[in-house]
Design a protein around this nucleic acid. Structure first.
Length: 426
RNA sequence: GUGAGCGUAGCUCAGCUGGUGGUAGCACCGGGUUGUGGCCUCGGAGGUCGUGGGUUCAAGUCCCAUCGCUCACCCCA
């Protein structure tokens, strides 16, 4: 019986990995432009970290974590908790008043896999710690938008405010009162949600629930003055930066730690998975985790979802190419080519040759397959006359080049000849 | 945790109400081109029809079980 990867865990094969690399390089580039520095974090953390940050009663903590119960450790289901733990542990706030950090890597949740949702999935996570200003909220969303733009992905941005510990509890109880009155008109799930997570009812997709909820009190009307001012300033900031967005008063978060600004990048092209990136402000969380009383805001992009969209929208990718393929015919020629290819590689070129003594036709085919820009053809005739044929694969033009006895010298000459014409394929 | 659908070559799939002999395309290898890739053409290799059981003279096809995958609910990036 063949051993296969386990359910919800996927291999990213070479062809697909090209897309992933492009995505990661774009992200690192753009995060860097916004002053974010990379932080690399462990995959395993104490279980308690996630219970305290994400929330004991959330689905993630209650039933989706990969936990080694006997050791009290868990494979991270998201990045923010780990990042903040590291931030607090190493006292990063004393270095700079505002820290912008990003991390990229795998996360783990034991859910049933479906389109755009795996058990091991990957996120790109950006967090800004120490800045309460609404301008930062707008800046972060603008950064997310820029990344999507440069990845060729179109999505809409929805924003909302969840208020703060001063104003949310009041809204929450008003909402519960409203929902209780209409309990009988809500779906089974929403009836349960009234007790577990009443705000979540606002986000139910069932038409009947949506209709009921239209009449519900709006959190935006219930915000305290500071939260109201903050939200207004966020909207102005987005407008100043030309970032299109819509206000969605029904949007909520699945994690407990969010305050004030929340946002999601939404697409209709991924089946049931609409959110490709989401985040928000978490002003009390760092203190709650035993750190300094600093505000924070961050968001995560789901990389599998981005990759699916890039594929659908046919985002052009840089394809790897070979600078020079050496086609050697016969043992003597192969013996000459062997160190030559090595020297070419030492000089920084990508070079390849065949080791199985195949026909020239087969080797040319191989050269084409490896996307070689040039092929150097060396046979017995060429060795005898100390001249090889250099073929430009795109133009099919050939020229002869003098053969040197020394491989390093030969490689150097070829590199000079071939490099100036190396094309970076779009 | 719940529901539905699907398992035929490395990939994408054909195979009608069960009827000798398992399709095709892509990819791979070779020939046409005795030393020149992409196009064309000819050929080759590649399959326990997911697995086990049952019905039948006969099962890729029908039934049952099992495993796997996919999508959706839930939840979320």
């Amino acid at each position: 019986m063949k051993i296969k990867a386990i359910n919800g865990f996927k291999d990213i094969l070479p062809e697909e990995a090209v897309r992933w690399r492009f995505m990661e390089e774009k992200a690192r580039d753009i995060f860097g432009r916004f002053g974010a520095r990379e932080i690399r974090l462990p995959i395993l953390e104490k279980t308690e970290l996630f219970a305290r940050s994400i929330g004991e009663a959330t689905d993630i903590v209650e039933k989706e974590m990969y936990t080694f119960a006997d050791k009290g450790i868990t494979m991270r289901p998201e990045g923010t908790a780990s990042l903040l733990r590291a931030f607090i542990e190493h006292g990063l706030h004393v270095q700079q008043p505002v820290q912008r950090l990003y991390t990229i890597g795998p996360m783990f949740r034991h859910e049933r896999p479906q389109k755009g949702r795996l058990r091991q999935f990957h996120q790109m996570d950006v967090e800004v710690i120490g800045a309460p200003e609404p301008a930062v909220d707008a800046e972060l969303m603008a950064m997310g938008r820029m990344l999507l733009d440069e990845l060729g992905i179109s999505a809409s941005l929805e924003i909302n405010s969840l208020g703060c510990p001063d104003c949310r509890p009041g809204f929450r109880s008003r909402l519960i009162g409203f929902l209780e009155n209409r309990r009988h008109r809500l779906c089974q799930d929403c009836r349960r949600r009234i007790d577990t997570n009443p705000l979540r009812v606002l986000d139910c997709k069932k038409p009947d629930c949506r209709a009921q909820v239209q009449e519900a009190p709006s959190i935006l009307d219930a915000l305290c003055d500071p939260c109201r001012d903050h939200f207004a300033a966020v909207c102005r900031g987005l407008e100043a930066l030309g970032v299109d967005h819509g206000v969605n008063r029904f949007m909520v978060r699945g994690l407990d730690y969010y305050t004030r600004t929340t946002f999601e990048f939404i697409t209709g092209d991924l089946g049931a998975q609409a959110a490709i990136g989401a985040g928000g402000r978490y002003d009390g969380l760092i203190e709650q985790l035993g750190g300094p009383a600093l505000p924070g805001i961050g968001f995560a992009m789901g990389m599998e979802r981005l990759a699916l969209l890039m594929e659908q929208q046919e985002t052009p990718l840089p394809r790897p190419a070979t600078d020079l393929f050496v086609a050697a015919l016969g043992e003597k020629a192969a013996a000459y080519a062997f160190p030559l290819v090595h020297e070419l590689r030492r000089l920084g070129l990508s070079a390849a040759m065949d080791h199985s003594g195949r026909s020239l036709k087969a080797q040319m085919k191989q050269a084409g397959r490896t996307r070689a820009n040039y092929t150097l053809i060396i046979g017995d005739n060429e060795l005898e006359q100390q001249e090889a044929i250099l073929r430009d694969m795109a133009t099919r033009k050939q020229e002869s080049v003098a053969l040197q006895t020394d491989a390093a010298e030969q490689a150097h000459l070829l590199a000079l000849r071939v490099r100036q014409n190396v094309i970076v394929h779009p």
